[in-house]
Simulated assay, not measured.
Amino acid sequence: MARLSSDQVLKDNNAADPTSVTTLYLTHKALSDITFLANFINLEKLDLKLNNLTSLEGLRSCVNLKWLSVVENKLESLEGIQGLTKLTVLNAGKNKLKSIDQVMSVVSLRALILNENEISSICKLDQLKDLNTLVLSKNPIRKIGEALMKVKSITKLSLSYCELQGIDTSLKSCVELSELRLAHNEIKCLPEELKLNSKLRSLDLGNNVITRWSELKVLKLLTNLRNLNLQRNPVATVDKVTRKVKKALPNYRYSMLDQ
Rank of each mutant, 00 (worst) to 15 (best):
S178N: 12
M104V: 15
R142S: 11
S137W: 08
S160R: 14
E118C: 10
L114K: 12
K217D: 01
C174T: 14
V209Y: 01
P140R: 06
N185V: 06
L194F: 12
E193V: 01
D130L: 14
I144H: 02
N115E: 07
L134P: 10
L97W: 08
S108W: 00
N208G: 04
L157A: 03
S137G: 15
K98Y: 01
L128W: 11
S173Y: 01
C162I: 11
L125F: 15
L164G: 01
V135G: 08
L157K: 07
M104N: 12
L190C: 10
Q165R: 14
S214A: 13
N197H: 02
L112H: 13
G80T: 10
K188V: 08
V135L: 15
C162Y: 12
L177N: 01
S170E: 07
T211Y: 04
M149F: 14
L148P: 02
D204V: 07
K188Q: 14
E116D: 14
L128M: 05
V151L: 02
I167M: 15
L90S: 07
V89T: 11
I100L: 15
I144K: 01
S173C: 13
R201G: 02
R142M: 03
V107C: 09
Q82S: 13
G93Y: 04
V89N: 07
G145E: 08
N139E: 06
K172N: 14
L87G: 04
E215I: 00
A183H: 12
S108A: 02
H184D: 13
K188E: 13
I113R: 11
K217C: 00
M149T: 15
A147F: 13
T88P: 02
T211H: 06
L157Q: 03
N207F: 15
E192D: 15
L205G: 03
K195P: 04
V89D: 14
G80M: 15
S170V: 09
K152C: 05
L84R: 00
R212E: 15
W213Y: 15
Q82T: 09
L90E: 08
L87S: 04
S120V: 11
T88K: 06
K96G: 01
S153L: 06
N132Y: 10
L200V: 00
L84S: 00
C189D: 08
L148I: 12
S153H: 10
T133G: 02
E192M: 08
I154T: 03
L90K: 02
S198W: 01
D101Q: 14
L87A: 02
S105G: 13
C123G: 10
L131Q: 06
Q102F: 04
L109C: 00
E179W: 05
D204T: 05
N139I: 04
S170F: 03
